[in-house]
Nucleic acid binder design. Sequence first.
DNA 1: ACATCCCGCCAAGGG
DNA 2: CCCTTGGCGGGATGT
Length: 880
Amino acid sequence: MGPLTTPKKGREVSSVDPWTPTSNLKMLISAASPDIRNREKELCMDNDEQEGLESTQDTENGEESEKMVSRKEKSLGLLCHKFLARYPDYPDPALKNDICLDDVATELNVERRRIYDIMNVLESLHMVSRSAKNRYTWHGQTKLAQTLAILKKVGKDHRYDQQMQHIRQRLLDKEFDFDEEEKENEEVVDLDNGERGQKELFFVELPGVEFKAASVNSRKDKSLRVMSQKFVMLFLVSNPRVVSLDVAAKILIGEDQGADQDKNKFKTKVRRLYDIANVLRSLKLIEKVHVTEERGRKPAFEWVGPEDFPQVNDLDSCPSGCPSKTKSVLESRASVDNCAKNLFSSPEAKRSFTRHPSLIKLAKSIQDDRRKVNSAPSSPVKSALNDSSGTDFPNKMAQLAAICKIELDQESVSGVEDPKPAAAEADAAAVRLQPVSSSSMKPPQALLLTPTQEPGVNTTVHLTPLASKPTSSVAYVPAQCSPLIPVLLPQQQGSGSYTVYLPASSLRPNPLARPQPTSLAVRSMTFEDKTGQSPTGQPTAKSQQVSRPSEVSPLASKRLRSDSASDSSPSKAKRSDPNLKDSSPKLCEILQARLKPRLSNQLSSRPSPRALHLDPEFVNTPGAAVANQTLEQSLETFLDREDKTVNSDGEAGLTPLRAVHLVPGPLHTETLVPAGYLIPISQQSLASYRETQGSGGDSNKASTPTCSIYQTPTSGSRPALTQEITPTGLRLHRPTATQQAHHLHSPSPAILNFTLQNLGLISNPSPGNTFAAPQTPEHADALRSPLSSSLSLQQKGVVFLKTVSPVPVQQSLSAQPLTLINLQQPLMATPKGTGLSQHSFFNTPVSIQPLAAVVTTGGHPTTKPVYIPQRKLDVTTEDS
DNA sequence: ACATCCCGCCAAGGG
DNA sequence: CCCTTGGCGGGATGT
């Protein structure tokens, strides 16, 4: 109820008044805290002295007074507020919102260096983009939803959630149980690591935003930018949207981290995280909180931004590429070129990607670290965290797949192809609709506000169909499920595609050595309610827990083995990488080619459609040597891999249940990803591939072309939500049923496939997501996998966030907490919620104690699985 | 004593 | 060579 109302309100409000964070800020600033005003005054002018002088004793001069100003007044967060106040949240695309660093620095009266810090994080969210030397272009939140969706997707692909779990566990273990379990875990982990070496990703770009300045290209991988994106990803993939500083730092350090340097590195990383966090706070995307464990409180941040968006799917929808496509063939071309450039620093790229110097540096450092860590043959690694090298590969593949999907969507849209099955259509519709519904979130509003842009473009074709069908209902649902469900991004400006740069860090197959636990260990958590309010009661959700190492280990080991077997060894992976590289460019071309005809007339404005960048290092990976394989081969490999992985997962037995029930055939469906790839193929010599795949991998695909595949995720996601709601035990059965029910419209095999995919997808989305990635080798999760989705849900459901602010969002519904929560969050995102929060925030200018957030998890009755929450976590706002 | 994180040195890269 | 970027870590400031 609360949630519902909230949303409505939010929407209403939004409808009435477009949500403009900036505007709100401005208003708040002007109206609210004097402190802020003072600061502004100081900045802007000199006005007089107002009370602001407080700190200063005498203040002879305004200047001096400023000097006296407490450090807080100079905080990056405050500076960022000031900066944000200067631009509209949703700038008119038509206008050129140019930002001159010099001017800003002067006006804000700060050193330039500080502006760079802000710009870097804003850039990581694509709120600005460097247009030229001293110049940035302001995008505001126009692309925020899309960006977040992508980041979430990428984060999941990289299994950040798992990594976090591992780290947390590790920390806990160390703290608690030092030895035994740890060792086991370590070993397991090690194995996993060996298999997967996870790669780090580099900067994720949006289609429309790409780096404009050539200069920029070279440094895309800069830490602040990338770190910021990673940091955000952590929030987006974690169940309770709470990320503790130490965990984040460890993950961001490069997974590896050796014990020794760690300390220094850790400190530095933490410093940067604070910098980033301050900006994100000013953006109202996160709030500071404290996680309380038995041991003590740890600083942490909670995501308070929009939640919803869909994953990659969004992109697809967004991609509406239509517009982009339309923009121009030229652009596409250009984009392609860019892609190529990005991907390959040098022409030689194929063979070995050249790294940018910076990259090299990173790689080195990373490698060094890893070496240290790994040096021990069986250095412990966290299974979850890392992924085997193979994993990395898959991740990349996934990214590519995502891109492909997007493109496919576009194609389908433009082309109208689609033999989609009804179900697929429905799903698609849902997805597409979502954007709108989702719009409850910012994005939608944005759309409303600025109809000009996106409007027509993207949706034209897509929307229509959707609308026709289930629109409202469908849309609605998604919204609820939002978290899991893929939502289309409202903003379609950008094409769906995004570029991901992978760092070389992952060079080693087993990158992660398990970090040694630092003093900071985090515990797994269960959230308890602190305030008595645990929401309505149900309360108990558990946060996740870590599966016990011992338990996991066996499975993990199994999994690993299976994976390895399936994977055909590292060599394969290596090969694939190269292939990918090759393929990616090709794909781009292909896509473009396809698009061109359709696009024929488009506005040239559209930048590149999408580019994928794989990390050069990728190439470097173990074998490094790479032969060029044809795209086809690469694709095939990729597909095979996925299949295998999938199978392996099944083998793992982790969650065979799901797979089995859902679909026998469907399993193949996983091919979703593959499908994406397939698409590209189709263009070239696609047909053959598809067939091959289809026959070999999935009959489904063949039957349901890309569209179905594409959609699948969406539909799947939804169902998953539902399922999740249900208790664990029931879940399995139920979910299926529900899903089916959802899909009832069209029982076609395609549907089944979708369901399967969905399951997989679902699993992915779910925090636990053990399952999600077909490829994931890991392990411990495996146990969870079946449950994982449920757990995650539970967790979600369980967790209640309370905001000090009136808004609220806290209610948790007993029945389907998740849904509610999701809604709420979105609501939060919605104007009202935000407004409130903002108010609070603003009121307390500098220090910000925005909302106190309390996360409580109840006991978590349901979790049967191994993953029982071991410890409690209390999150409290830190105001005090 | 510890958490935060500002400040600004200084290197890298581009022109 | 100069200027823009921005990594990085000392050490000040807040709690």
